[in-house]
């Protein structure tokens, strides 16, 4: 065999790497199965890890065959992209940073390199170097593909979570017969403000609420856009025949609002959710009395 190959003006280094990968498919996969990346991902059976390794070797050979070792978009990678993504994702879930995952991917290279070097050791140094360079490039591209896939999976996850957040972040609570409240937590942007407005107003109809409390204790900052949305919500509630109280404006936010020159003058505000509830109960004519002495707990 070596003889046949040595004589070859046949291959470019890339094609030699391709042939090497095809010949040594089984061995490479076996060695990779012992690497932390494969071991950690395929915990159930070693055979599974070997099979996964073979798939990656096949993909590498295909890319080498197409002479596209530097191209992370090469068609050969398509088949293993999902698998690589799953492996990287499973490592990130285990708490590894993207850099650590990338390092684990890098550690796949030395065993292959060692095999290649020992196989071609009788060849002239120059040829050997050309082959190892081609392999190293190919492995680098593999790493790029895996990291790319991991990042895009991350983006998809963020998109999904954003969606979920919009849905769960606006709970409407019925505090009393005729009083609903939305405790807002986190940053209000335009899209979320819209959701809040619709949710609150629908709750006013469903719960037949005379009063709606928007509690912004958990909102870190209020800019003019958010304030505008709050005012719109208040105005819309009014048109429907309900009264909207804004509670929990923290001192820092009150200061910002004054600095921004925002006029919440026409909006009913209370310091805390409890005060707002007290106000609404009072307006509804509900008297709350304390235990023994019958003294009022809240106005």
């Amino acid at each position: 065999m070596p003889e046949h190959e040595a004589g070859g003006p046949l291959g470019t280094p890339t094609l030699e790497v391709r042939d090497f990968l095809r010949r040594r498919r089984e061995q490479i996969a076996q060695r990779w199965a012992d690497e932390p990346l494969f071991r950690a991902v395929f915990t159930l059976s070693r055979d599974e890890a070997v099979e996964a390794g073979k798939a990656v070797v096949d993909a590498l050979a295909q890319v080498a065959d197409a002479q596209r070792v530097e191209d992370s978009d090469a068609a050969g990678f398509t088949g293993v992209r999902e698998q690589l993504g799953r492996m990287s994702a499973s490592r990130s879930r285990a708490g590894l940073s993207i850099t650590q995952v990338s390092n684990e991917l890098a550690s796949l290279w030395p065993p292959v390199d060692k095999l290649l070097t020992s196989e071609l050791e009788e060849r002239p140094a120059e040829e050997l170097r050309a082959c190892t360079t081609a392999l190293s490039t190919l492995m680098g591209t593999l790493r790029v593909v895996a990291v790319q896939t991991a990042l895009s999976e991350g983006q998809a996850l963020i998109d999904r979570q954003r969606l979920q957040l919009l849905e769960v972040a606006t709970p409407v609570i019925r505090l009393w017969d005729g009083i609903v409240a939305v405790p807002l937590i986190g940053t209000l942007d335009s899209a979320r403000s819209q959701v809040v407005m619709e949710t609150l107003l629908n709750a006013v109809v469903d719960q037949h609420a005379r009063f709606a409390i928007l509690d912004i204790t958990g909102v870190p900052t209020v800019d003019s856009l958010v304030a505008q949305h709050l005012m719109k919500t208040v105005a819309a509630a009014r048109l429907m025949g309900a009264e909207c109280v804004i509670s929990g404006i923290r001192p820092a936010i009150a200061q910002t609002m004054v600095h921004l020159g925002l006029d919440l003058g026409s909006v009913l505000t209370r310091a805390s959710l409890a005060d707002a509830l007290g106000y609404c109960l009072n307006e509804l004519g509900v008297a709350v009395s304390g235990p023994a002495d019958g003294s009022a707990v809240r106005r």
Binding site: R81, E82, G85, S152, Q155, A156, D159, R160, R162, L163, L166, A191
Partner: peptide, 9 residues
């Protein structure tokens, strides 16, 4: 539409 999760590949 809220941002759609990309199709799973």
């Amino acid at each position: 539409r809220p941002p759609r999760a990309r199709e799973e590949r």
